[in-house]
Simulated scan of single mutants.
Amino acid sequence: MTEKTIGILVTGHSPAELAETYGNYADMFARLLGGFDFAFKRYFVVDGEFPASPRDADGWLLTGSKFGVYEDHDWIRQLEGFIRQVHAEKVPMVGICFGHQVMAKALGGHVEKFKGGWSAGPVSYKRSDLDEEQVLLAWHQDQVLRVPDGAEVVGKTDFCENAVIRYGDWGLSYQPHPEFSPRFFEGLAEARKSAIPEPLFERVKKVDVPIATDRIAREIGEFLSRDR
């Protein structure tokens, strides 16, 4: 099988106090997918660095971010346009957290700050397409509240109804963070604990349950590897 190039569209920066140990979000995805024959190109779209064409990579991956997709930033609007181009060209795309949300918004869905509050820490997601539950690490208040026409919700919780979305053979997106290790998550929670209610921080500051990292890494890698 020919090596595929995956373009990582980096939509946020990891906390500076964690970057030396864990790297940036692109580094985390490169580690997550290290078992596949991929070469990676990194584009820091959060800083205005964009690919020239949807064909600059064989597949695309959108990272998480501290920003909301509804915020008025030029790079977010440019990113939405690029997602629509990638969709039109049928180059496969995977989105995580902010990436999950911006894919939905770009294609006609609706995202907003969820009135029910935060989801953080280990969360069990019900997967209708796999008939199983998967524990993954969540860190979000924004949610996809309406999915685009033609998209299929295949993962959910009682708190987050649209947590995993499939876009036919083209796209796949997840609200939780398979790229976060338990130790990175604990550091992130400490660095940004002022963003979440203190009782929630106390519940999630230590991750001591198994996470379905390998299962999701395989799913993402196989999705991006598939010949279309």
Rank of each mutant, 00 (worst) to 15 (best):
Y70I: 02
V135G: 09
F67Q: 07
L188R: 02
D72T: 02
V154K: 10
V45C: 14
A52S: 14
V204I: 15
D149N: 13
S173C: 09
A212D: 10
F201W: 11
I76K: 03
A26M: 01
S65L: 11
V135S: 12
L136N: 07
P15W: 11
S128N: 04
F36Y: 12
A104Y: 01
G117A: 04
S53Y: 11
K105Q: 08
E190Y: 01
D149H: 13
Q175M: 10
V102E: 00
H177Q: 00
H73V: 08
L172H: 00
K4V: 05
M1V: 15
A104M: 01
G64C: 15
D47N: 15
A163T: 01
Q143D: 07
T5F: 02
F36Q: 01
R55C: 05
K105S: 14
W118G: 10
Q78R: 15
G12Y: 15
F180C: 06
T63A: 14
H73T: 09
S194P: 01
E89H: 05
G48L: 10
N162V: 12
I96N: 11
G221H: 06
I8F: 06
D214N: 10
F114C: 15
W60M: 11
A88S: 09
V144H: 03
A151C: 12
D27A: 12
P148M: 10
I220R: 06
L188K: 03
V207M: 06
L200E: 08
E161T: 08
D27L: 03
E89P: 04
A191P: 02
D56H: 06
A163V: 04
F185N: 03
Q85C: 09
G108E: 00
A19T: 15
D227K: 15
F98D: 04
G150Y: 10
I220K: 08
L172G: 00
L188I: 04
G155I: 02
I216P: 14
F184Q: 14
Q134C: 11
